[in-house]
Design a protein around this nucleic acid. Structure first.
Lengths: 180, 180
DNA sequence: TGCTCCATGTAACACGTTACATGATTGC
DNA sequence: GCAATCATGTAACGTGTTACATGGAGCA
């Protein structure tokens, strides 16, 4: 149960609206914690009820319904509490690997197109990360602590994609060889 | 929605009971598709109702309640259908990365112990994979297709753990440096 | 007798997904 | 005027988690 904590973190980085948070969960924080806009609205309502966050009308609201949220001391405290509590490493639910095992046992399906599709997606994601790195972390400068952490998180994403790509190519050779 | 397909795959690899499947989901197939025993029993009931699998009393049942399941043609067909359908790459929900970002913004918590704990877990998992490799895939022999796929899947798990470990050590240096 | 493991489940609840609803603002 | 985007939500449903229940088998 870390969605509320991911939202708190995101709000601390920048107080904003549910709509905007939802878009942030399609990039940035969403790269390692996925959530839909409905989950976010629900969680915001709960956290407001719990006194962790409070809504306010932003200066640029005009006549819109827009609401921003800021983190209250109780929310900050809860985030710190949770951060120190041990949590399990992420458990994986990777459909493609299931498919591979299905292929190994069925021996009658061609996963090459799907693998190629995934390879392309991983390459696109890697390229995306590299663009972010070029923009936000120009080389040669020593970074303050917070920035250095953000940079290493980004690097982890890149490592992950690179590993997926390297492995995927090996797998492609194996699947291709035996198909022809 | 790939849990039923993971179960079908596992049953094709070896027809067995819900209890045994649950244990298999704590290792083997569970390394990349996690599920609890309640999910498995529920899914078995559904798939039996759908005509994808059928229960039978195994020869060694004695007076126990033990039931085994085998995959029916409809189940095999469904698995093949699903395997060819495009599915999204796994989306990540990694609590530790959320904690790191929380640390970056709160700047008042010490994640070193939690990181060390995770590092130890990744090292243990890697060692476990290496034992499996030594046992099941002795070097130097060309493997049949199905085995070669299984081996590459295992290698992917090892790559993943190695990447986590290498990255974790870098992160440890960063967090440690700035704590002292 | 009491303990652990085998084996299958029910129930309740929390979390995640999909579909739909509503209305205001911005740009063409 | 119309379409796209901003912005917030409701409802229904499906999946995943936690707690508990039940009873047999094997063993000290």
């Amino acid at each position: 149960m870390s969605l509320p904590h991911a939202v708190l973190t995101s709000l601390l980085e920048k107080a904003t609206s549910g709509y905007d948070l939802a878009r942030r969960f399609d990039k940035s924080i969403g790269y390692f914690w996925h959530a839909t806009h409905q989950q976010i609205y629900r969680e915001l309502a709960r956290m407001e009820a719990a006194g962790w966050i409070a809504a306010f009308v932003p200066p640029d609201a005009g006549k819109t319904r827009k609401k921003h949220y800021r983190v209250l001391p109780a929310g900050r405290q809860e985030l710190a509490r949770w951060a120190l509590e041990p949590t399990a490493p992420m458990d994986l639910r990777d459909a493609f690997t299931v498919k591979l095992r299905a292929d190994a046992v069925l021996d009658e399906i061609d996963l090459v197109p799907e693998l190629e599709r995934h390879l392309a997606l991983h390459q696109a994601q890697l390229a995306h990360y590299q663009r972010i790195e070029a923009q936000d972390f120009p080389p040669g400068q020593p970074l303050p602590r917070a920035q250095a952490i953000q940079h290493l998180i980004l690097k982890r994403g890149m490592l992950y994609e690179q590993a997926q790509i390297a492995w995927g190519r090996e797998m492609l050779v194996l699947l291709g060889d035996q198909n022809t």
